[in-house]
Design a protein around this nucleic acid. Structure first.
Lengths: 183, 183
DNA sequence: AGTCGATGGGACATCGCTGTCTCACATGGG
DNA sequence: CCCATGTGAGACAGCGATGTCCCATCGACT
């Protein structure tokens, strides 16, 4: 009967992804538990968000590991990364938004580590001549986050099919919308 | 002594762009007026946001008009649009986020009109052979919003120089990060 | 069956924000 | 000079969300 903490976090993530202002009561209902029980496991809203943050960081880091960014071309690596990220895309964009809201310098060090990994990936791609050098790694990183968020939202509203998720992001990020002559 | 309504809206936009959860009191302070005065001019928070929405729609529509999207190449049109949008980029991304939060089917009809204009622009670009046809106009539209938001945020945090705003967005959206051989 | 631990529901006080009101004051016009 | 309009500051009640507590209940384990 012990509460499935993981399951609670999953449903909370799913709900907060759609409605980031959901109350503790709504989160509890969505998880199928009572508000009191939710409070027993997460001291308060802050603690809940912190737990979600850890979950998101862990998932994103796992996606980075699974993508094996350095194997093969940078393009293939990015494609694997976006595909691996898709299941947690909603949570990721919720956390990015939440982080922007957050005014405090003590940013979770997990984010800087992840940012560094993504940024380093783009930099290596530039050094290997696969990526343009006039778009900075920092911007490409932010743009990737933005596109993931936009595409997750587009999927949720039906503007983009879920199966096209990684294609739309990677093609736009790498190839751009311009129609090249040789294609 | 009459209150400068426009000025209040500007500072409210600037504040809410940075901190979208700011209270009425903070908005009033930021505008250099008392909370009571703020309430005299905007019945409540909803009314304030609605006024900001109208302002944002108006600005974005003006940018669309000023960009003259149909003159010259689609690429130049997009470049003009992004440049014209830059001053209102923060407000725009605040409103986009606010709209996602909003759960009600009565979306401000201004947005659908603007969406339609942007979407139609991408579609025309496809028909003229300037844009790829495997990325749907709806996705390109959402991606444009996302990139504008990401870049505005990046500028605010110092990751991207303000003068590079339109370059970073347009180059990424049109050309992509891949380094083509002929360049 | 009996006990223990965890849960759900409800009651409760508290807190922050909101919206309204009043009053004193300043500025500008008649 | 006096009046009118608009403003700032503060007080006030209302509301929704939060966090804590208690108690009845349910399930698992002995």
């Amino acid at each position: 009967m012990t509460l499935d903490r993981e399951q609670v976090l999953r449903s909370a993530a799913a709900l907060l992804t759609r409605k980031s202002t959901a109350t503790m009561d709504e989160v509890a209902r969505a998880a199928g538990i009572g508000r009191a029980t939710l409070h027993r496991h997460f001291a308060g809203r802050d603690a809940l968000v912190a737990a979600l943050e850890n979950l998101g960081i862990q998932e994103f880091e796992a996606a980075l590991d699974a993508a094996a960014l350095d194997e093969g071309s940078a393009e293939d690596g990015l494609r694997r990364l976006v595909t691996a990220v898709q299941p947690g895309a909603g949570l990721l964009s919720f956390l990015v938004t939440e982080n922007q809201l957050f005014e405090g310098d003590d940013v979770n060090e997990g984010w800087s580590r992840l940012d560094a990994r993504v940024s380093a990936f783009f930099r290596r791609g530039q050094e290997r001549g696969e990526f343009r050098i006039d778009l900075t790694p920092a911007w490409l990183t932010e743009a990737l986050y933005g596109l993931i968020g936009s595409c997750a939202w587009s999927v949720q509203t039906g503007r983009v099919a879920a199966q096209d998720f990684s294609y739309m992001i990677v093609e736009l990020l790498l190839g751009g919308a311009r129609r090249s002559v040789e294609k």
